[in-house]
Computed example of a mutant assay.
Amino acid sequence: MAKLNYHHLQYFYAIATHGSIAKAAIVMHITPQTLSAQLSLLEAQLGYNLFDRKGKRLVLNDMGHITFSYAQEIFSLGDELVHSLKNHSTDFSFRFSIGVTDVIPKVFSFNLLKTVYAMDNSIKLVCKETSLDVLLGELAVNKLDAVLSDTSLPTGSSLKAYSHLVGKCGMSFFAHKDLAQVLAINFPQSLNNQPFFTAGEGSNQHLSVLSWFNELNISPKIIGEFDDSVLTKYFGQAGYGVFCAPTMIENHVIAQFDVEIIGRTTEITEHYYLISPERKVKHPAVQHLLTQGKKLFNKAIA
């Protein structure tokens, strides 16, 4: 068999994607007659028809689905090549683009991401912070090299990616020292009817903390819900109520906000994942962050 003509494969891919020769021809800026002829050449070379006609539409048959799957992989690999080359400039510096979900503690993100500069001081770190859904969309189209998240890749996701567990830890509860000293005596039952700040509604932390309270049959008085965890800490620092944060950053919280620990629990667990795409060529910073992240957790819980 002669070598595959990738132009023919690209024409086939356009027809399969848009559902008709007419629509694909507009996108490809060629005539429908030319596109039809190119498809016929590809089918002749492969020795199979790739579509069945359903009225005016072309529908992939079994061989067409197989060919389409390979075409997707080929063009995805081409995009990956371009993405990889764009990350390198003439002075050999390279770019690492990472998404961070907006619930990840900033101090943890900083302590982890700063380690990439130890790899190469000419690296350019690009960090985007937003929701997991948005970040996974950008990961899918090669705009990001990895995503740091408090949840793994959702079950049933069509994205070809891996969820690497960086580490996990329990939860610590804090308040202004005057309140903390009183509530520490009978923790966690002491939290019953006490003013409490939670993470934003819908977050993993919000759900897991309230579920834990329910299991213990205690009912703190929820006086605030904040997406911004730093704002929560400021309110706690000012003496308005109790808040919680991952145990691995408790030393930072105490030093930065002048609060004291009421108590800790490992019955609420925070997980941190590095989600990386299933690419043939992985960015070297991904494995580096995995290694450094595990070291951070081991040091924090030692």
Rank of each mutant, 00 (worst) to 15 (best):
L159G: 04
N142F: 14
Y162W: 05
V166W: 07
K168M: 09
S157Q: 05
T130I: 11
Q181K: 15
G224R: 04
L148F: 15
P154K: 09
S122N: 13
L207H: 13
N193C: 09
L139W: 10
F196C: 07
A199I: 01
V166S: 05
S172N: 10
D178H: 10
I185M: 12
A161S: 01
A184M: 11
S203M: 08
L159F: 05
A146D: 02
K221T: 11
K143G: 05
S157A: 12
P154G: 11
I222F: 05
T151R: 14
L216G: 08
K160D: 08
I185E: 15
T155K: 14
S203Y: 03
V126H: 13
F173E: 02
Q181H: 14
L148V: 04
K143N: 14
L135R: 06
I222Y: 04
M171S: 13
A140G: 09
A199H: 13
S163M: 00
Q194G: 02
D150C: 10
I123F: 10
P195I: 01
M171C: 12
I223K: 00
I222H: 08
L191A: 06
E138H: 11
G167F: 07
G202M: 05
V141I: 15
S149R: 00
L216S: 03
F226E: 14
E138R: 10
H176M: 09
A118D: 15
E138A: 04
S122T: 15
V141Y: 07
G200A: 14
L207Y: 06
A175N: 03
F173T: 04
G167H: 01
S149K: 06
G137V: 06
Q189H: 11
P220I: 00
I185L: 14
G224T: 05
C127L: 15
K221E: 14
L135V: 03
A140C: 07
S190M: 10
G137S: 12
M171W: 05
F174C: 08
E129A: 08
L183D: 02
A180H: 01
K128C: 07
E225I: 10
N193D: 13
F197I: 11
T151P: 01
L144N: 06
K160I: 01
V147I: 13
P220L: 08
D145P: 04
G137D: 11
G137I: 08
K128M: 11
N186M: 00
L148A: 09
I218C: 03
F187Q: 07
E225P: 00
